[in-house]
């Protein structure tokens, strides 16, 4: 299955191509979302749509790194206008044979796969969605 491959710092991540609407360059400034959890970078105007952008690093609880995020991966989630802020996008690759990912089990991560001799973490769009919604739900 074809996946969009992108990076958070040096780690590589993949999302099924069908779950990605497009990839854009982040705007010079985001509109801050009042009272939103810190992982929410803000909202941006994408051709008249208001898109909520989440920093993937924070969503996945990854440590802070030196490289400024340079791309927004827009998810195709029906009416939900959601974008993931990532370090960079590498391209589209076929990803096969996904095995269990190491570490804590989270619905946002489907597993890991080998790609060009290196590992790539395959994300689960449905789980990412749920993770974002969970950020907003007070019980968490």
């Amino acid at each position: 299955m074809r996946h969009v491959i992108f990076r958070v710092e040096k780690e590589r991540y993949g999302l099924p191509l069908s779950a990605v609407r497009e990839v854009v360059v982040p705007p010079a400034r985001f509109t801050l979302v009042p009272r939103a959890p810190p992982a929410i970078t803000g909202v941006m105007n994408l051709r008249g749509r208001v898109v909520t952008v989440v920093e993937l690093r924070q969503l996945l609880n990854l440590p802070e790194g030196p490289t400024p995020p340079a791309r927004v991966v827009l998810l195709d989630r029906g009416r939900r206008d959601l974008g993931l802020l990532v370090t960079d996008v590498d391209g589209i690759e076929a990803v096969e044979r996904i095995s269990t990912a190491p570490g804590r089990v989270t619905p946002a991560v489907r597993g890991v796969a080998r790609l060009g001799g290196l590992g790539v973490t395959v994300l689960e769009p449905e789980g990412l969605d749920a993770a974002v919604v969970a950020l907003f739900t007070p019980s968490k």
Binding site: P34, R35, T52, R79, R80, L82, V132, V133, L135, T137
Partner: peptide
Amino acid sequence: LSRPLDLLPGLSGV
């Protein structure tokens, strides 16, 4: 407001 923004109290629209 689309998901997840509609979950925030205190915002009525954008």
